[in-house]
Structures are given as C-alpha cells and as structure tokens.
Write a protein that binds this DNA or RNA. Sequence first.
RNA 1: AGCGAGGUAGGGCAGCCAGGAGUACCCGCCGGGCUCAUAACCCGGAGAUCGGUGGUUCAAAUCCACCCCUCGCUACCA
Length: 557
Amino acid sequence: MSLSRNRGTLGDRIKRRVIVTSALPYINGMPHLGNLVGSMLPADIYSRYLQMAGVEHIFICGSDQHGTPIELSAIRNGIDTEKFADSMHERTKNALLNMECDFTYYGKTHTEQNKRVVYRIFEALDRNGYISEEEVMQAYCLLDMRFIPDRMIEGICPYCGSAHARGDQCDDCGRLLDPQEIVGPKCSICGKSEIEFRKTKNLAIELPMLSENIKDFIRSIEQNVSKNALNKTTSYVDAGLKSRQITRDLKWGFKVPKKGFEDKVFYVWFDAVIGYIGITMEWNEALGEEYWTDTNTELVQFMGKDNIEFHTVIWPAILEGSSIGYIKPTRIMVYEYLISGKIKFSKSRGVGLNIENALDVMGAEYWRFVLSYLLPETSDMDFSVELIFEVVNKIMNDKIGNLVNRAFTISSKNRALLSGNSLREITGRKIREKLGIYRNDFENVRMREALKQIVELADLGNEIMSVEKPWELAKAEDAEGFSKVMNDVLHICRCIGIMLWPYTPNASTYILRHFGIDGKPQIDELQKSMEFLPDDDIKPIFSKIGEREKNMLSGFG
RNA sequence: AGCGAGGUAGGGCAGCCAGGAGUACCCGCCGGGCUCAUAACCCGGAGAUCGGUGGUUCAAAUCCACCCCUCGCUACCA
C-alpha cells in the first residue's frame, strides 16, 4: 500500500535550493515552438518537478528587450522604442502564461533593477582590469545619422555576386564577409547608399585573461552538460579566446557609465545574461541577493544550442571576472532544434507557428505533451504534422486519456461495489519501479524519458483492465473482485495524475480532484492512501485532433 | 573549409561512455481477443546486412582509423 519504500530520501533533499532559468526570449517577434521547446518548456517542467518534490527553488525568465532589431522594429512601427519593447514583453508574457508556464517571475531586461546589476558587474569588471577599449571601423548611415550593425548592411557579395549579401555573411555562398567588402552597400533601415565607414571605440571584456578560470569552470560542470555543449565549448576555448565587445553605438539600451562612452549602450547580450540576476532582483531584492550569493544554490539553466557559448564561457567569465560572489551555473541543459520541412518556424521573418498561433490550433496541454514527448535532447527533431497527430491521438489520448476515462467511468457507475483502497503487491511493485525511474530521470533532468514512464504506467492500467475484465466482475456483482482490480487501476490513475503535473497541469488537476487532492500536488502524496471519489459527470481529459487541426498546421507550411 | 552533433525495421526514438547472441520501446502493418472506455484497450506475428570500408578482440551497434550522407555553429542576430 505504501509507496515509500525505495524513496525515503526526500528529507535529504529538502535543503536544496535551486535557481532554474530559461533562456530569455528575444521579443522582436513572438517566440516560436522551437524557442519554447528549447528553453521555457523544459525549464518549466523541471521547475514543476522541483515544486512537487518539495525542493526550494525559483524559476526565472523574462523578455530580452534591447538590441538593434527591436529598435528598428519600433522605428518601422512609428512607436517609442521602450513602449514597443514593453508591449511585446506583455504579449510574450501572456502567451507563455497561456502555455501554462509557471514562472516564479517573468520579468524583462529594461528595468532599473537590471540596470543596477549590469552597472555593478561592469564596474567590478572594469576595476578588476578585464575591460579594454577596441577601435573598429563601423558603417555609418549619413541619412539616419547612426551607426549600422554589419548585419544590417546589404549589397552585392564580392565573391559570388549574389545581390543578397549582408555585412557579416553572404547567405548564398555562405562566406563570412567584412562589411567593407560589400559592393554597393546599402543601409537596411532607409534603403539608401549614403554610407561611410567611421572609426568608433567600444569596450570589450578580455576573455583571454579569464581563460584559466573558464577552463576550471568547464571542468567543474562537465558531468552536468550535454556532450554537444561540452564539445562545442571545449573547441571554442581551445581555439583561443578573443576579447568580446560589450558596448554598441546605439541609443536603445543601458547607457555606459564610463567617461568617453556615455553616448554608447551595453551590447544586448551583455545585459541579457546579467538579466537572469536583474530579473530575480525585479522579483525580490532581498531573496534574490540571497539566492544568487549562496554558494549552495544550484543554478540550472536551460537553453537552445545556439546559446551554448554564452552560458558556458562568456557568462561564467563575467561572473568570475566581477568577483562579486554571484554563483555560476551548476548544470547547463542544452536542447537541439525542432526542424520541419512543412511547418515553418521563423521569428525574424515573423511567419510560421509561434506560441500565440499554436494555441489557436490546440490547447497548451497538447503542445506541452507533444513537445515533451519529442524533446530534442540529443539530436534535432524532425517535427511533422503526422508525428504531432501520432503523439496526441495515439499516446496522449488513446493510452493515457482513455485509461483514466474508462477507469473513472466504470468506477463511478459501480461505486456500490467499490470499497477500500487495496493495492496488490505485484501492481504496487510495478508502480514503484516506474516512479523510481521517473524520479531518477528528473534528478538527471531527462524529462522525455520521465514522460515515457507515465505512458508505460498507462499501458499497465490498460493491460490490467483487459486481462481481468472488471466489467464482468461488476455484472456478477463480485464486489471483492471488482474492488481488487479497480483499486489497482485507480492507484495507477492517481499516480499518473501526479506524474503528469509537470507536463499537463490541468489534466493532472482533474484526475487528482477525484482523489481529493487539490492545488499543486506533492510527489509525497503517493504514499498516502486516498480513495476514489465517484463522479456522475466524468469527462475525457483529452480529445483527438482531426481535420481542423491538420488544415491549420498545414497552413503554416 | 574548420569544428560539433546525428545516421539502429516503413516512420520515430533507446542501447554506445564501462564490448558478450539486435526478443528494447512507440506508431504503422498482419492475425486473434475484448466490449468498461473516446472506432478506444489487450494478446500474438512479420519486418533491421545497427550509414560504408578496414582494424583491434575469443566476441563489435558499442573501441580505433578512414570514407559517405543529414543538421547545426564559426564570434557585429540575439
């Protein structure tokens, strides 16, 4: 009956304190499903697990609001940049909340709190001698009267003659370019060619001075990062670190508090990574300081693979170089990409399946389940309409949803026969086994595998019902036999209800309500014996998707 | 080009680090069963030269070398 036997370590863990972060979405456009699957969703699921396991933690994310693309979008829309950034922040935040992301706090980077942390860290880096000045040639548009980032210079590729070369790279031949090589350079803001190259001075962080620290850091977490991330980091560091600029000639952003650089702002990536701390401070200064400076705090960061070096090299270098005592990451979770020939994800072009219009196709729980089931932990995931249908209809609905429905229905209809809360030893052992693997998977941050344990539990429930035919026992009015079988199945359903909470919280809540569990469940509650509460209005927890969804998804091709 | 990751039945994904017969798993397919449940569920079966070649070994999907294919990154997009 008790499920406690092989799990009594909760007491040891209760003292853990964890900061979970998701990469901050850049809000020039609505985050798409690839952004969600690579950072916010796994971070949310992990954070919900910690919540269930009773681990003290915070889950921090927020909007990355600075940078040229946002400033330009605001200009194009004729809106004040800050207003634009804030409105995109609100939209993104709402969409993420609609995706059932259960943040402790979802903030943004353009805040006084973040500015304070950025200044504090910058000044410490400067004081410690890690900031240098670099002079570079930068394109300047005489009409817009501003510097233009390399990427926003367009023109003809000097190598292949393509008319679509950009200042940093030619998309057609793939060659890396110097913006001064571009033939007929045009400013992509005004579209004119009134460009000249001017010298400008920017500040940089001297990563080479910190390379030993960085190497030590990487060694310290090598057990806690994926193979891909570790290898990329190693090759990046082994290739020899270079200084990296942290300021830009822009208006939008935090002004640089240093003589001679007052007309420049911090480069967006710099205040974005620091934003993890800044957003925590926006949430709660006192607790934030406590979390970020307690050397026992675990810092578990989730991101897509495009963000690796920022988190494994540059961010720890900033933290180390500032010597303020902020903790460094203890675990870095990197996800690969969702790729699809048919469904498009493109934030920069503003088309395709983003998290806002994905919710028009089907509910958050469906996306959360599908994306978790297909979580690209080790390799890119080919994400097809057929695969979405398979997972939703066959796995989520037929196996799990249908099991709960058939078990609840037959139990409610035959409530007079149902008594006690017995659990046969064989079933109890199987449940404990699955639960043990589930917990172990979560401790190792393998959410896709953990979800499979739930599916396998549903298989077990379905098998028990098919083999033992409780409907026949009900007809024979064999109360003892019926209770024996159905209590096993109901225990399985309750267990599924709890295990499902990180993935599909609403379905979980519905299931658990039938066992008298309200609110956020604790994994501990599996030890308690709770009886099924019959209900004359049993509803399926999931339903199938069909033509409507297929057409809508195809529409994003 | 360099670096990284992946290539395992029709599709999807484990296994590889610590070598021991490909009975993993999911979908699909074929055959049977069941009728509590959402045309759902259960049982059985077919289906793989483990990308290729060579090497190490008593033994290789697993270790080593080279090659082929796919994807990603390469520092001013964030």
